[in-house]
């Protein structure tokens, strides 16, 4: 990744142009060609720097309910339980963390009822009852935007 890649990333992480020729707009701001912008973005996607290009939606605004859950999984069952949990489409993130509650996952569902049923289902499928349900009650910051230094 070079400086131009960093400039492009800084420009397109937020406020991607909503105009007929968005790549041309980015290109003219950076003083390069539209083709080069497109090729660079293709490259950044290929190497995995860009996970996805598109819209990130606010689940609450769309009427969806989301939560964070932590579950206590015995060491020898980690892979198996991760697979059971990941199988649910509403699970968007799932990580192993350094705590007795070692598996942390997020669940997004179209309603509270669907959400609670899904968590119940997960307890049943994993045969683990020790699950804490931590839906956010106050949102102070939701922002995943990384500024990349362009001098390196």
């Amino acid at each position: 990744m070079d400086n131009l890649d960093r400039s492009i990333l800084n420009r397109i992480q937020k406020g991607f142009p909503i105009t007929s020729r968005p790549y041309l707009e980015v290109a003219s701001q950076l003083g390069i060609s539209e083709d080069e912008v497109i090729e660079r973005i293709k490259g950044l996607k290929k190497t995995g720097v860009i996970r996805r290009l598109g819209g990130i939606f606010d689940s609450r605004k769309l009427g969806y309910k989301s939560t964070l859950c932590a579950i206590k999984v015995p060491e020898e069952r980690i892979e198996e339980v991760a697979e059971i949990i990941n199988h649910h489409l509403g699970v968007t993130h799932n990580y192993l963390r350094n705590h007795p509650y070692n598996m942390w996952f997020t669940y997004i569902a179209p309603s509270d009822e669907v959400l609670m049923n899904a968590l119940h289902q997960i307890k049943k499928e994993t045969k683990i009852d020790d699950l804490i349900h931590l839906p956010a009650t106050n949102f102070f910051k939701i922002n995943v935007n990384f500024h990349l230094k362009e001098d390196a």
Partner: peptide
């Protein structure tokens, strides 16, 4: 605010 962010999601 339905779209929280429009652009590239970076790893």
């Amino acid at each position: 605010g339905i779209i929280r962010r429009f652009g590239a999601a970076v790893k």
